[in-house]
C-alpha cells in the first residue's frame, strides 16, 4: 500500500527525476544571475518578457485548457494596471497600508483581484454563449475597457495619462530595473507554480474535460457554470497581476497602451508556444516578446510578422513550439534503436 502511495506521489509530482531537478535549478540560477550579466536595457526588456509570460500562462488556462477564446485580454491587463496604480496612489497619500509591509505585493494582488471580478462578469455569458459568440463578447469587453478609460479622465488621467509611484517596502524603494526584475520574476515563478498545481489537479482536469466534451464533463459531475466562470476569473487574475507589474515597470499609464493589438499578441504567444501547456505559454511569450523588442525599429511591420509566424507555426506544428520540443525529446530518447 505504501508503495502504491509512493507511486501516486511520483505521478503527481511536478518535477520528476534528477535531470529535471538539475534543469530547474540551472534555470532558476540563470534567472537570478541574468540582471548582473546583462546591460540595463536588456533587463528592462526581460521585465516585459516576465509580464507577458504571466499573461500568456493565464490566457492559456482559458484558451488552451478550457477552450474559450478571449480576444479582450488587454482589458484585464488594463484593469489590473489602473486598479493597482490607484491603490498605490491612495496608500501613498494616506500612509496607512505601508505600515503593513505593503503596498507593492498588495498592489499586484489587488490588480489581479480587480481583473478577476471582471473576469467573472465576462465569463458569466460563457454559460449560454459558445465559440465565436463568446469570443465576440470578449472582443467587445477589451474595446470597451479602452474606450471607457479614454473617456473617463478621473480614472485614466485623461490626455496627460497617469504616473505610477515606484514600488516600495517601507523606506526601501525598488526603483532600478534590476530590483523590478526581481519583483517581476518572483511573481512569474510564484504564479507559474500555481498554474502547474492547478493543471495537475481536479481543477485542470475539469478545464480540459470541458474543452474536450462539455456534455461528458457535465454528466460526470463537473459544474459547467462554476468551472467556465472560474477559468475566466483565474485567467483574468493572471492578466490583472501582470497589469500591476506593467504599471510599475512602465511608471506611466495611458489608455492607448491597451489596444486590440495587445490582445491579439497575447493570443499569438499562446498559439505559437503551444495550446494547453504551461511551458508552451512560457515559450511563446518569451519568443514573441523578444521579437517585439528586436524589431523595435520596424514596429509597423510587427502585426504582419506576428501573423506570418502564427500561420507558419500552425501549418508546420499545430502543437506549437513546445509540442515540437517534446517530439524532439522523444526522438532523442528513442534514437539509438
Amino acid at each position: 500500500m505504501t508503495q502504491l502511495i509512493q507511486r501516486y506521489e511520483e505521478e503527481m509530482a511536478l518535477v520528476r527525476g534528477g535531470a529535471a531537478w538539475t534543469g530547474l535549478v540551472l534555470l532558476l540560477g540563470a534567472l537570478a544571475a541574468l540582471p548582473w550579466l546583462l546591460p540595463g536595457y536588456y533587463v528592462y526588456i526581460l521585465n516585459f518578457v516576465g509580464i507577458n509570460v504571466i499573461v500568456a500562462i493565464g490566457l492559456n488556462l482559458l484558451v488552451g485548457y478550457t477552450g474559450q477564446i478571449s480576444l479582450g485580454h488587454v482589458g484585464f491587463v488594463a484593469i489590473g494596471a489602473y486598479a493597482a496604480t490607484h491603490f498605490i496612489r491612495a496608500t501613498e497619500a494616506s500612509g496607512v497600508v505601508a505600515a503593513l509591509g505593503g503596498p507593492f505585493w498588495m498592489a499586484v494582488f489587488i490588480g489581479g483581484a480587480a481583473a478577476a471580478v471582471f473576469g467573472v462578469l465576462v465569463g458569466l455569458p460563457a454559460i449560454r454563449l459558445e465559440g465565436p459568440y463568446l469570443t465576440i463578447v470578449t472582443l467587445g469587453f477589451g474595446l470597451a475597457v479602452q474606450q471607457i478609460l479614454i473617456n473617463w479622465p478621473a480614472v485614466s488621467g485623461g490626455r496627460i495619462g497617469m504616473f505610477v509611484p515606484q514600488p516600495a517596502l517601507g523606506s526601501f524603494v525598488l526603483g532600478s530595473d534590476r530590483s523590478l526584475y526581481y519583483l517581476v520574476w518572483t511573481v512569474v515563478i510564484g504564479m507559474s507554480l500555481v498554474a502547474f498545481n492547478l493543471t495537475r489537479s481536479h481543477v485542470g482536469r475539469a478545464f480540459i474535460a470541458i474543452r474536450d466534451s462539455d456534455i461528458a464533463a457535465e454528466v460526470t459531475g463537473v459544474n459547467l457554470k462554476y468551472y467556465k466562470t472560474l477559468a475566466f476569473a483565474v485567467s483574468a487574475f493572471y492578466a490583472g497581476a501582470a497589469g500591476a507589474l506593467l504599471a510599475y515597470v512602465m511608471q506611466y499609464l495611458e489608455p492607448t497602451m491597451f489596444n486590440l493589438y495587445e490582445s491579439i499578441y497575447y493570443l499569438a504567444m499562446v498559439v505559437v508556444g503551444g495550446l494547453g501547456t504551461i511551458p508552451g505559454a512560457m515559450f511563446g511569450a518569451v519568443l514573441l516578446t523578444l521579437l517585439q523588442y528586436g524589431l523595435s525599429h520596424a514596429q509597423e511591420y510587427l502585426p504582419v510578422i506576428y501573423g506570418g509566424i502564427v500561420i507558419l507555426v500552425m501549418a508546420l506544428e499545430p502543437m506549437g513550439l513546445y509540442g515540437r520540443w517534446l517530439k524532439i525529446k522523444l526522438w532523442m530518447k528513442t534514437w539509438p534503436m
Binding site: H202, V203, A209, D212, A217, T220, G221, L230
Partner: peptide, 26 residues
C-alpha cells in the same frame, strides 16, 4: 476527454468525490 490519458479520464470520474477546493489545488 480525448486529449487526456486513461488515468485522467477515470480520475475525472472521481471529480464528485474530491473534498479539496480550488485553493487547496492551487
Amino acid at each position: 476527454f480525448s486529449h487526456m490519458t486513461t488515468l485522467d479520464n477515470l480520475l475525472l470520474g472521481r471529480h464528485l468525490h474530491m473534498r479539496a477546493g480550488f485553493f487547496d489545488a492551487a
